[in-house]
């Protein structure tokens, strides 16, 4: 087994194991490693090398996808700390949060029902602000306080918000078609 197929993704990209990552540093490391292992570099190589190259490039893509996205990155970190974010099973959320969710849904439905593209844009911008606040919160919980169960709850909330983002996107798409 290759060294770096067994390395964790932070080691792979030479990054400190934290939730807050330097996106540019990640992008740079990703491109440098891909430039070394990508199958395009091994077109004329013997089959053994071509196979290894595909495995490695696949692994590097997986790592980049995991670390690039905040929800996946947080979940990955939590699992490494032995905390299962319990995405599938633990759906008990604070009542206040659920009420907020219902309000969001109503606002999206109303805007798409009245074909109000501007309102959808507005909701999308508001959601972006909300997401940013949550990323900062997870950063404090994981990187500063080591509060993994707390971070797991924030990650679950984040997943709800991402879903809202998709719904706003779908509503915009429906208006355009």
């Amino acid at each position: 087994m290759s060294d770096h197929l067994t390395q964790n993704f932070f080691e792979l990209f030479g990054l400190p194991e934290r939730f807050q990552v330097d996106g540019e540093q990640l992008d740079r490391a990703y491109r440098e490693i891909q430039a070394a292992v990508h199958p395009d570099r091994f077109v004329n190589a013997p089959e053994a090398e071509r196979r290894v190259s595909m495995q490695q490039a696949t692994h590097v893509n997986d790592g980049y996808r995991t670390l690039r996205n905040p929800v996946r990155r947080a979940a990955y970190l939590l699992r490494r700390h032995g905390v299962d974010p319990q995405f599938e099973t633990d759906t008990a959320m604070p009542a206040a949060f659920l009420v907020e969710q219902m309000e969001w849904r109503e606002a999206i439905e109303e805007a798409s029902g009245s074909a109000d593209a501007r309102e959808l844009d507005h909701l999308s911008a508001r959601l972006a602000g909300e997401l940013k606040r949550m990323y900062a919160e997870i950063g404090r919980q994981i990187d500063e306080r080591g509060d993994f169960p707390g971070a797991a709850e924030t990650v679950r909330k984040l997943m709800f918000l991402e879903k809202l983002g998709m719904e706003i996107g779908d509503a915009m798409e429906a208006l355009e078609d």
Binding site: H4, F13, G14, I33, V37, P46, A48, E49, S53, Q56
Partner: peptide
Amino acid sequence: NRVTGPFATRRMDRSVKRAL
């Protein structure tokens, strides 16, 4: 191909380290 397989893997690891 079979006997050079492990060599290919080690070479790849080295080139990743170099890249980084």
